[in-house]
Simulated scan of single mutants.
Amino acid sequence: MTHRLGLTGSIGMGKSTTARMFRDEGIPVWDADATVHTLYAKGGAAVAPIGQVFPDAIVDDAVSREVLKELIARDASVMSKLEKIVHPLVAQSRQAFLAKSDVPLVVFDIPLLFETNADAWLDSVLVVTAPAEVQKERVLSRPGMTETQFQTILDRQLPDSDKRARADHIIETLTLDDTRDAVRKLIAKLKRQSDARDRT
Rank of each mutant, 00 (worst) to 15 (best):
D177Y: 08
L176T: 11
K42I: 12
R138T: 02
E70L: 15
P143W: 04
P143I: 02
I171P: 00
R138D: 04
K81W: 04
A167C: 11
F114T: 02
I110Y: 00
A76K: 12
L174I: 14
L176W: 10
L89G: 01
D178I: 02
D60S: 12
V47S: 12
K81N: 09
Q157N: 09
V90R: 03
I170G: 08
G144P: 07
K42C: 13
A73M: 12
P104Q: 06
L176R: 14
A45H: 08
K136F: 03
L154G: 06
R65M: 04
V127Y: 00
G43C: 06
V86K: 13
L122W: 01
H87L: 14
V125W: 05
R65T: 02
L126K: 08
E66L: 12
E172V: 06
T129L: 10
I58W: 05
V106F: 02
E133Q: 15
P104M: 09
T152P: 03
V78R: 06
Q157H: 07
T129R: 11
T38V: 14
H169D: 07
V90S: 00
T146M: 15
Q151Y: 11
V127G: 00
R164V: 13
T179Y: 12
A41L: 10
A45G: 10
D109V: 04
A182L: 07
P55A: 06
Q92E: 14
A120S: 11
V107G: 00
S101E: 02
T148H: 15
Y40N: 00
A46L: 08
S124L: 05
V67M: 09
V103Y: 09
